[in-house]
Write a protein that binds this DNA or RNA. Structure first.
Length: 423
RNA sequence: GGAGAGAUGGCAGAGUGGUCGAAUGCACUGGUCUUGAAAACCAGCGUACCGAGAGGUACCGGGGGUUCGAAUCCCUCUCUCUCCGCCA
């Protein structure tokens, strides 16, 4: 959520910035400025009457105490009128506040200056590319065939137990999955991230804090009986650890990591992209979340990007890094880098990580602040990224590392898996 | 699932109609003292919004009500804790 103060102070910059998302926010911004001016005017009126009313109440109290009951009763007349006025003004104020709030929620984050304008993935900007795209042997297969040939993942069994999009990992597949989780967590911890094991269900306040609610409840599994939502990403519980907190600037950067399964309804996305591990209702992901001050957040973003890159290097997977254009970046993001690995048998790039700086957009909702050198509270900058999303990494790993002898495990993972080839 | 208790500032914990944004203790910050540290003493120390400032307003779990006036009384919702039962 953008800050109203920022909209008030630099409306042109916001309108200009949002154009990169293909949005013309002129009307909304102008309406917000109007609403805000009205709201503050009404509030001022109300507060003056409240001040008067408070003063009268004190006076009346004094008069009663000193036995001047009749004088006190005279003052009550004025107080009664004030009370009605205050009530009316308050209703008006609440109406304006609600309108303003609902309107401000419709504005996405303003893209960082480096974000290219554009409307979809075709306008994303490739910033780097690393690793060799392997030449596969004759008869190489996509991962869904490998998964069944080597008995690694049973998709049909998942359908039986739960439904499509809930695969069952078996034997070496299950062990490989567990190995990767441990590998990623260890690497993150070594890079200075504090490890958390957060809840997998969250309440509405948490969903609201990170921006899944309102409006996007359709993407989450909901348990209405208990008012809980299955997390679509560990970002939700981990970031909400810091909701309503004033953190110490001395602790910056605050770096957290955690593994969780992620649950996504993916309503309406049935079709071409859902084959195999490409899109699931339940999948595993290790997440990194960082909190810092506005001055250092972009340096921290670069650090997170470099860290994620190092993970893919160690897994010996070819990847490219994209700077997302305005139209393709998430609603809450100011700048997002996507990591895509090349899955050699499918011959396509798969998104395996998305690293973003939200600046104050999330912190504003979360009420996540720190105290600056003057002792004033300021909103933090929040960042997060996947490190990593497992299924697509697994897909690329199976496809790229397949040989006629079997599937080779990257060196870095062998101490975690306990085997170096799947036959 | 049954029964009960409670929700107050970073924490602990007072406060049952007026001068309470809220005692006190701890923690924290600054200072005095000390060679240094500790102790002791002094001072400061919630958040948000409006305002150039002085200052004003709101907030004692959320919402509503009574009253000239509510942390305090009433209604309602939510949550937490304790005991019993069940259970990993």
């Amino acid at each position: 959520m953008l800050q109203i103060q920022r909209i008030r102070q630099q409306p042109e910059a916001i309108i200009e910035g949002l154009k990169k998302r293909g949005i013309d926010a002129t009307q909304t911004v102008n309406d917000l400025i109007d609403l805000d001016a009205q709201r503050r005017g009404i509030r001022h009126q109300m507060e003056e009457k409240q001040a008067r009313s408070n003063a009268l109440a004190k006076e009346i109290g004094q008069l009663f105490k000193s036995g001047k009951g009749s004088e006190a009763n005279e003052l009550k007349a004025e107080t009664g009128a004030l009370k009605q006025d205050i009530k009316a003004l308050n209703e008006e104020l609440q109406g304006l506040e609600e309108k303003e709030h609902n309107l401000i929620l419709t504005l996405p984050n303003v893209p960082h200056e480096s974000v290219p304008a554009g409307k979809d993935e075709k306008d994303n900007e490739e910033v780097s590319r690393k690793g060799e795209i392997p030449t596969l042997h004759e008869g190489a297969k996509p991962h869904w065939d490998l998964a069944s040939d080597y008995n690694l993942i049973d998709f049909e069994l998942g359908v039986k137990i739960s439904g499509a999009g809930f695969p069952v990992y078996v034997n070496h597949g299950a062990r490989l999955q567990r190995a990767m989780i441990n590998f990623f967590l260890d690497e993150n911890r070594a890079a200075g991230y504090t490890e958390y094991q957060p809840p997998h269900f969250v309440n509405a306040a948490s969903g609201y804090g990170t921006g899944q609610l309102p409006d996007k409840e359709g993407q989450m599994y909901e348990m209405p009986l208990d008012g809980l939502y299955a997390i679509p990403t560990a970002e939700v519980p981990i970031t909400n650890i810091f909701r309503d907190e004033i953190v110490k600037a001395a602790d910056f950067p605050i770096k957290s990591t955690g593994y969780t399964p992620c649950f996504r309804r993916e309503a309406g996305s049935y079709g071409k992209d859902v084959r195999g591990l490409n899109r699931l209702h339940q999948f595993d992901k290790v997440e990194i979340v960082s909190i810092t001050d506005p001055e250092s957040s972009y340096a921290l973003l670069d650090e997170m990007v470099a860290h994620v890159a190092s993970l893919l290097d160690k897994l010996e997977l070819p990847y490219r890094i994209l700077r997302l254009c305005g139209g393709d970046a998430g609603f809450t993001s100011a700048l997002t880098y996507d990591f895509e690995v090349y899955s050699a048998a499918q011959e396509r790039w798969l998104e395996v990580s998305s690293v973003s700086n939200f600046e104050t957009f999330q912190a504003n909702r979360l009420k996540l602040r720190y105290r600056d050198e003057n002792g004033k509270t300021q909103l933090c900058h929040t960042l997060n990224g996947s490190a990593m999303a497992l299924p697509r990494v697994l897909a690329a790993l199976l496809e790229n590392h397949q040989t006629p002898e079997g599937i080779k495990i990257p060196e870095a993972l062998v101490s975690y898996t306990g085997f170096d080839i799947i036959k």
